[in-house]
Amino acid sequence: MNTAENRLSENALVICQHEDLIPNSGICALVNGQQVAIFYLPEEEPQVYAIGNWDPIGKANVLSRGIVGDVQGRIVVASPLYKQHFDLTTGECLENEDTPVPVFPVELIDGQVILRG
């Protein structure tokens, strides 16, 4: 887990470096005491996505360890616990729309992963 401490401005944080990312997979970063799952999909636009790491159905911080894929044209991560799919752009759970996860604005700029808030 990476701890983001380098502030760019009041509303932007450097979460990690590009080389910390794993293609087509997720990592976890601790941001202001909250775990954030960061996914790097080099063939998509945008290339990075950030959602809460907490799986509201499995009740554990595990989404960064899920499998990334495509369900009916939506980029998702499947929870490693009960296999629910969470949309990486909206946070919506495809199997249960009453249990979304938070989505965070994130960018890859000059080799840095930047979370905006």
Rank of each mutant, 00 (worst) to 15 (best):
I27L: 15
N96W: 03
P42F: 04
V103F: 10
V77M: 05
Q34G: 01
I75Y: 10
P46D: 07
G33T: 07
L8P: 00
I109M: 12
E107F: 13
F86K: 05
V76S: 00
G91S: 08
E44S: 14
L88V: 06
Q72K: 12
I67Y: 03
D55M: 02
A37W: 07
E45Y: 04
F86L: 02
G66C: 02
I15V: 15
F39G: 07
Q35M: 08
D98S: 15
G91Q: 09
D55G: 04
D87K: 05
T99D: 14
R74P: 01
S9A: 07
P56V: 12
E5P: 00
V48D: 13
A4Q: 10
S64Y: 15
D87E: 05
G91Y: 05
E107Y: 12
T3N: 05
R65P: 01
A29H: 09
V71G: 00
E19A: 13
T3Y: 08
N11M: 10
P23W: 03
L81G: 00
V77N: 04
P102L: 06
D55N: 05
I57H: 13
P46L: 08
E44G: 01
I51W: 11
K59M: 13
D110F: 02
E44F: 13
T89L: 14
I75H: 11
I15Y: 02
T3M: 04
P80E: 12
A4P: 01
V106G: 06
H18V: 07
L13I: 14
N6T: 13
V48F: 07
E44Y: 13
P56M: 14
S64M: 08
I38D: 06
D20I: 07
N2R: 14
P100C: 12
V62P: 00
I38P: 07
V106Q: 05
A78S: 11
G111L: 06
N2S: 06
E95N: 11
G33H: 08
I67N: 02
I15E: 07
L94P: 11
A12T: 12
E45K: 09
Q72W: 00
I51M: 11
R116N: 12
P23I: 06
K83R: 11
L94T: 10
P23Q: 08
N24T: 03
F104P: 12
G73M: 08
V77G: 03
I57M: 12
Y40N: 07
E10G: 14
G66K: 04
